[in-house]
């Protein structure tokens, strides 16, 4: 699946940058160290935006084009931060045949956030994910880890409402 660019403002701190630079220092002279460095960078920032990729590019003496290629090849890497409200819609086979696609569209429409993206204010993120192992409950979504199963289209907005109010 094609990854989307983030429109969320970068909020990295000097502490995070110092941590990343230390990681780069440890790996700089190791061959093939790009993967572990990117993994650690993601652990530090939660995702890998342009600002972080540039630091890695300069530090590891690897081009930005190559880094971006690696990041978009492996699904473990995120170009978008998870939202405060992180919604995963299961797109596994069982959920898919029971209308997961419609549910994804519905949530996307209600929140104005496209699949794979995060709202500009960083509040909501929406993602279609692989089978989460709850096929008996298909179709399934999770919001910040809470599972909502046997979901009907009509119930979607009510569930989302709960997260509108809460101070999450």
């Amino acid at each position: 699946m094609k990854k989307k660019m983030t429109t969320v403002t970068f909020k990295g701190t000097p502490e995070q940058e110092a941590q990343l630079i230390q990681v780069i220092g440890e790996y700089k002279n190791t061959k093939g160290a790009l993967m572990p460095v990117l993994q650690k960078a993601q652990a530090i920032y939660g995702y890998l935006p342009l600002e972080v990729q540039k630091i890695v590019a300069e530090g590891m003496d690897v081009s930005l084009a190559e880094i971006y290629g690696v990041i978009t090849f492996y699904s473990q890497f995120l170009l978008n931060p998870k939202g405060d409200v992180a919604i995963d819609v299961c797109m596994g086979t069982a959920c898919y045949v029971r209308g997961a696609g419609d549910i994804l569209d519905k949530i996307s429409g209600s929140l104005g956030v496209k699949s794979g993206e995060t709202s500009d204010d960083g509040r909501y993120s929406l993602e279609g994910v692989r089978c989460i192992g709850a096929c008996g409950l298909a179709p399934v979504i999770t919001i910040n880890g809470s599972v909502y199963g046997r979901l009907k289209l009509g119930e979607v907005d009510k569930i989302l409402d709960k997260y509108k109010e809460k101070n999450i």
Binding site: M1, K2, K3, M5, L50, Q53, S63, L64, A65, E66, I67, Y68, G69, T72, F73
Partner: peptide, 19 residues
């Protein structure tokens, strides 16, 4: 120079610049 590369994977793979 390396300003182009292969982005994404599978059927979506294509040549382009970072981001």
């Amino acid at each position: 120079i390396s300003v182009i590369g292969a982005n994404d994977r599978g059927f979506s793979t294509h040549i382009g610049c970072a981001f």
